[in-house]
Design a protein around this nucleic acid. Structure first.
Lengths: 138, 138
DNA sequence: AATCAATACGTTATAGCATAACACTGCTGC
DNA sequence: GCAGCAGTGTTATGCTATAACGTATTGATT
């Protein structure tokens, strides 16, 4: 499995450390998880991590998973995605699969058009079990 | 605007108090908001509220909004909805609109079928501005 | 070079959200 | 009765996130 991750050259030291940590993690990490992993690099306070995360999320290099209060690196190297991204979170192994669906996005636009709601941001998170974990449990 | 809310007869006192509070709220409430509103009724600890919320959510009488860490009463009196419910949250007035979309649900099933993922629960939360707030800002 | 604005940084303190653990109550069914 | 279960009340604690302060660095402008 190849790394699809991206590491822009213009990140600050803290941003680079945080994104590096997320890139190597097999599952989402909380800000405090990240902090603990980076204490050896000199980070001491939650805010150092949160500030880096804010920038990374803003740039689309990382995503926040609302239902976990945790963060993952963006799985798409070209992260030009402006639209709706869905996350499938396995309760077994913790792995997260990221995908986009144009039809769902279209439905959402249609609903927004009909109600006059202006969509700014959408989070879609699916909890369940991935194929690997289902098979292991069988 | 009619109350679509429901208040089952078999709730415990705490559950009834919490659901009553949610039913009358114009916008989502955090557990601590609810606690503060119910101190006059004798509630003192967060756990009293959280336990009631757990049951209410389990029964589909209330929903948790992950992106707000807050709760709303279910808008559908018959809340038989097992499937995907989407919430549109207005950043202006805080109001939440709850709706279901069969097509989106179908897309999700299709994705699940294709990847072997077993969906247990889905949260879909849309942030933006409602028609009323957009008009007010114009 | 001196200045200014913008951005990032580091630190301490605090706010806000959620649960662990324990003891007790009240009901239901045997 | 009494065992089992769901609900309750309380204290303590842990996890998540931000406020408020000052400093440092960078880059553009004069």
């Amino acid at each position: 499995m190849a790394h699809d991750h991206v590491m822009p050259a213009d990140l600050t030291r803290n941003q680079e450390l945080v994104l590096g940590t997320l890139n190597h993690a097999p599952a989402p990490l909380s800000a405090y998880d990240i902090l603990d992993l980076l204490r050896s690099e000199g980070l001491r306070a939650p805010l150092q991590v949160y500030r880096a995360l804010d920038k990374l999320v803003e740039r689309g290099l990382a995503h926040r998973l609302e239902s976990l209060n945790a963060f993952v690196a963006c799985a798409d190297a070209h992260c030009h995605r402006k639209g709706l991204i869905a996350f499938a979170i396995c309760e077994g192994c913790g792995k997260v699969d990221e995908f986009a669906d144009a039809v769902t996005e279209e439905r959402l636009s249609a609903w927004a058009g009909a109600t006059g709601f202006k969509v700014e941001r959408t989070t879609m998170e699916i909890r369940g079990k991935c194929a690997v974990c289902l098979k292991a449990a069988a």
